[in-house]
Amino acid sequence: MTAVASPVAVRVPSRSARGELRAIKIVWQREIIRFSSDRLRIATSLIQPILFLFVLGSGLSRLTGGSTQGVDLRTFIFPGILAMSVMFTAMFSAASIVWDREFGFLREMLVAPVRRSSIVIGKCLGGATVAGFQGLVVLALAGFVGVPYTLSLLVPVFALQLLLAFAITAFGVMMSARVNQMQSFMALTQMLIMPLFFLSGALFPVSGLPRWLTVLNRIDPLTYAVDPMRRVVFDHLHLPAAAVARLDPGVTWGGWHVPGWLEALVVLVLGVIFLGVAIAEFNQPE
């Protein structure tokens, strides 16, 4: 008679709110650890904002000095460069999902006894934290372009950066849900991110544009992050009324001036929508 081994009971812990919060925290921590341990990534992500701000801004200021009412072009484009640094960092954070899928780690995460929505939320919060930190580093350059270091300026601008970081990370996670190769994701990113940046008014005022460009500017989600940032910056500068009217006219809908709080709400609502779509995508079977 041969002995028959009895099967080992496997107990899967029941889902609970505490377990879901712990899963969100772990995924969030993983993003922070990956970013903090990659010093080369931190350094290289600063190169593009510095090039745009100091090289492009200083070079073009010699051509646009008469049209900026005496305002330094670097001061004008500074809010747009802040948004750009957050946007690119957030998208690259979301790109790690594609890496995880290629190397099989994502499948291990998805079979964990937690809701997939917790993994997506943790990923979005982690990416938003990383992008927000990167934006904070660029924000520290404010004094070099004539923007004052005051709490009433730094706090709302940083809050808008975090809001934008969350929305862009959620957008990137939504895009990466069905992309299997890193090359495809990077090509898709370049096709979408650069137009979003250039159409947002980061490098030009949003009034007096051709009608087709005005329409594209108003449907660009990044517009509603750049404009309130620029409004906060210009509110803390001592500029002639003519310069403010020309360089910071604000976004209008049919002649109605959109308030800053509503622009921030637009970014938040879009981020929540992107997050919901990303959760729905990850809940579908592979």
Rank of each mutant, 00 (worst) to 15 (best):
F204G: 05
I168D: 02
R218G: 02
E281C: 06
T189D: 04
H238Q: 09
R101Q: 12
G143K: 15
A90K: 00
P79A: 04
D248A: 12
S61V: 05
V114A: 00
T150A: 13
L262E: 14
S200F: 02
V155D: 10
T89S: 11
V244K: 12
F274M: 03
L110W: 00
E102Q: 15
R34G: 12
F204M: 11
E102A: 15
W253K: 02
I33V: 10
G143F: 02
I24M: 13
G271R: 03
G143P: 06
L262T: 04
V147A: 08
Q134I: 06
V272H: 09
I24F: 02
P148R: 14
L110T: 00
F133R: 15
G201S: 04
M109N: 07
T75V: 03
F171E: 01
V4G: 10
L73K: 14
V215C: 01
L213H: 05
V269R: 13
L151E: 13
Q181T: 10
S67C: 04
V251A: 01
R246E: 13
P228V: 03
R101P: 01
S184A: 08
A278G: 09
T252P: 00
M186I: 04
M1K: 12
V98M: 12
E281P: 08
G271E: 04
W253G: 08
F185Q: 09
A241H: 12
P156A: 01
E281T: 06
N180C: 01
L56R: 07
E102H: 11
W261Y: 15
T68I: 01
V155G: 07
L162W: 05
M191W: 05
M175C: 07
R101F: 03
I119H: 09
A165S: 15
L106Q: 06
V269I: 13
